[in-house]
Amino acid sequence: MKVLLVVNPSASSVTARTRIVIQKALSADHRLEVAATSRRGHATRLAQSAANDGIDVVVVLGGDGTLNEAANGLAGSETALAAVPGGSTNVFARTLGLPDDPVEATGALLDAIEAGSLRRVGLGCANDRYFLFHAGVGFDAAVVEQVERKGGLLKRFAGHPLFVAAAVDTWARHYDRSSPAFRVSSRSVHEAPGDDGDDLGEAAEVEGLMAVVLNTDPYTYLGTRGLSLAPATRLDTPLSVVTLRSLAPQRLLPVLAAAAGLGRRLADDPNVDIRDDVAEARLVANRPVPWQVDGDHLGDAEELHFRHVPDALDLVVPLGSPAFS
């Protein structure tokens, strides 16, 4: 089998020793090529070239952002994607059930490849950008923006405490919480598209300050605990859209507790609008709002269109993965 290993040498958990061990493991039974990313968007171009050259599997050693870029390069092709955790949070790799240690994860992937454990999975798409696990708009993306501004060595070594500090700082100083930032409408897979391309069915619009469109769950991890916003969402289901109406402390803290599995169910919280089985959604901003996909900040937008793209990507799935319903 022809395998390309794409390495992000700047990712938080990538070391020279780890890279060498993984290269030796992958090359033992497969024809291996190795490429290192050097700039934003590089993984997308490397993955596109791999698909065009008939590579069977692209293995990504990096964080969620590098994985997202590779997925965008492979979507619609017959080349499979495999994730090796190399970032600070590694949401997608952990969602698949891979070990946190990149060398152990490589072993699990080699077992999966030998067993032929590949699945064709759906992706989310925000405008023209695919995402593996979620896209975030508003407060969520503003936090990601602050993390990227303070990133570099601090992100490499501070990890989750940096995200928590950035969230508090963003809430206090870097995001307008005074009025709704946008409104969201959606159409479920059980509703037929309207004759008008802008008609997303009967679901009423909801206003909010933060929205997350999920292709799988959990939303993210805090330490070892997953924060779950849409428990029914898996890689073999349509999207879910979760909107927070208010970020006031007395309304936000119960949401965080419910997402962590503490307190009442998130679906019972009046501050949260949850829509499952979503085929497409449209977000119209009252003012330019930040947005991100898979933890990669993409700037500000005034309108975003989300859609579920079934059977978009071949994925190497570890044996016994919990990412499917």
Rank of each mutant, 00 (worst) to 15 (best):
L247A: 11
E280G: 12
A285G: 02
A260E: 05
L266D: 00
D277K: 09
P290T: 04
V293N: 00
L298T: 03
P249Y: 03
G299E: 06
L298A: 02
R264H: 12
L253P: 14
D296Q: 10
R282Y: 05
G295P: 09
L304E: 06
L283A: 05
R234L: 13
T233A: 04
E302I: 07
V242Y: 02
L244I: 07
A285K: 05
L235I: 04
V309L: 01
V293L: 08
D273T: 14
V278E: 00
P254A: 00
V241F: 09
V272K: 00
G261H: 09
A279M: 10
L244S: 10
R245I: 04
P249M: 04
W291C: 04
Q250I: 08
A301F: 07
D294Q: 06
L262S: 11
A257S: 14
G263T: 00
P249L: 04
A257C: 12
A281Y: 09
G299F: 10
R251A: 13
R251H: 12
L262R: 15
S240P: 10
G261M: 12
N286V: 11
R251G: 08
F306A: 04
D294E: 04
L266P: 05
H308S: 07
L256E: 10
P249R: 07
A279Y: 08
F306T: 00
V309A: 06
P288G: 13
L256N: 06
A285Y: 06
L266W: 09
E302W: 06
R264S: 14
R265S: 11
T237K: 02
F306H: 06
Q250D: 13
G261S: 08
L247T: 08
